[in-house]
Amino acid sequence: MSKFEFPTSIISRPVYGTLEPRDGSAHLMIADATGAQAILDVATPDMMAKAHIIYIPKGAEFGHRLRALNPAQYYEGPSYAAAEQRIAKAFGDAKMGLQVYLSGSEGVMGQAQHAAMQAGVPHTAIQTEHRGSTARRMQCVHCKGITEDVATDPFQCSHCGLHLFVRDHYSRRLAAYQGVNIDAEDPGNVPEAKGIYE
């Protein structure tokens, strides 16, 4: 499956790579939907012997193939929110030498990256590979509400209703892009929404 080429942008916009196996005392792999493919591509039996895979299928059917990798621990859950406590526990118990692999949508990778950083893993040491949806996790700068899976720009905030311009400015701490009111200087003049990468 071909990967989406994100257009070059400002420095705060995350850049994703391709997962590669690294030496480490343990391997924590978190993926959603077609992100599973990136794990299937990188997995080796040695790595799997010390691996914990956390997978959120979102309707994709890779679960049985991931399980067949025979990782030391495997979990499949319905949403990131459902997996969040387990992820927090995994990072809380982790030792130095842990390798972190994230793949799938920006929203899930961003939230998992945040959890890893809270535990003390530098963000530069976390591997990421984008697969699947290009929808964004976005915070409205005005009401602070976060909306998942924002695919169009402008976007009407799901919390406060303001029409927002979806910026490329990204916060790792919030795991979100920034949305800023688009018609503040000309109320009611909201351009027609189109896909963010159209």
Partner: peptide
Amino acid sequence: SPENYHKWGI
């Protein structure tokens, strides 16, 4: 602030 831009932008 951007937080209040929808109030002061006008």
